[in-house]
Design a protein around this nucleic acid. Structure first.
Length: 263
DNA sequence: ATGGTAGAAAATCTA
């Protein structure tokens, strides 16, 4: 089974590109982030006509997460227990959706950006990841052999080799010790990065800012990850980051990340 | 060259 995660940065502006890629890449399950669409705006039919079932959660023009699958979608969950909210009044955002696809519990996650190191949004980001680590630890405590995949845009570069320039990110989000510790806490809860062993750095990225020809200059970040529970990680046979999909007009600023598991 | 890119939606906000 082939599973992928991709921050599509607006599904409505990119549905042709996403569906073309999905078919061409022979992917069975795709977790998307930043659909930037309410439920009624999501192009469900474009996926259904290709044989994919859709589970989407979107509340406004911001955030939005989805899972599309051609191996079934069961037990859809919006958000996870303990997931923090944001805003005034504080409310849950559309940043997490889960479903069981082909026997695997898939989560499509859009971790808060953090904005700046002084912004309250950074504390939201850290809280959100802490709650995710707690939830994940709980799932594995209840069922140690559960096949679970935490897929998404984590908005954190865990290691120095994951950014094009360490000095550039000093004093900015995505590389700070607190963010890296929050990411590591999810790993320590029992979820391993299954892509890195197949796609070792340095210089291997999943995101390139649109500005200043960052992609053309090779100036990216690795911030999109597939973290798998022990039972699922043991089944992974390969992985790839499709940087070709970042090329050309109309590309998302993120590349799709794909991994394959033995049935 | 006094900005930088893209997408949402409706004047800025988010990334």
């Amino acid at each position: 089974m082939r599973i992928a995660t991709w921050n599509v940065n607006s599904i409505r502006s990119r549905v042709d590109r996403v569906t073309d890629w999905l078919v061409r890449s022979d992917v069975d399950v795709l977790a998307m982030q930043e659909t930037k669409a309410r439920e009624d705006q999501f192009p469900h039919e474009r996926f259904r006509e290709l044989g994919y079932e859709v589970a989407h959660h979107g509340l406004s023009q911001w955030n939005g997460v989805a899972i599309v699958s051609r191996v079934g979608i069961e037990d859809v969950q919006i958000g996870f227990d303990g997931m923090p909210g944001w805003g005034d009044p504080v409310a849950a955002e559309a940043r997490a959706i889960g479903a069981v696809c082909g026997g695997v519990r898939i989560w499509s996650l859009y971790i808060p950006n953090g904005r700046t190191l002084e912004d309250p949004h950074l504390l939201y980001k850290l809280d959100w990841l802490g709650a995710l680590a707690d939830a994940g630890r709980g799932w594995l405590a209840a069922e140690p052999s559960a096949p679970i995949a935490l897929l998404g845009d984590w908005n954190i570069a865990p290691f120095d080799e994951d950014v094009w320039s360490v000095p550039f990110y000093e004093g900015r989000t995505h590389t700070s010790p607190r963010e890296r510790a929050a990411f590591q806490a999810v790993v320590d809860a029992g979820f391993a990065d299954v892509v890195r062993p197949h796609c070792p750095g340095p210089g291997v990225y999943t995101y390139w800012d649109y500005v200043q020809l960052r992609f053309q200059k090779g100036r990216g970040m690795r911030i999109d990850f597939a973290l798998c529970s022990p039972a699922l990680a043991a089944r992974v046979t390969g992985a790839a980051i499709d940087r070709e999909e970042r090329k050309g007009k109309g590309a998302s600023d993120h590349a799709p990340v794909v991994f394959e598991i033995a049935d």
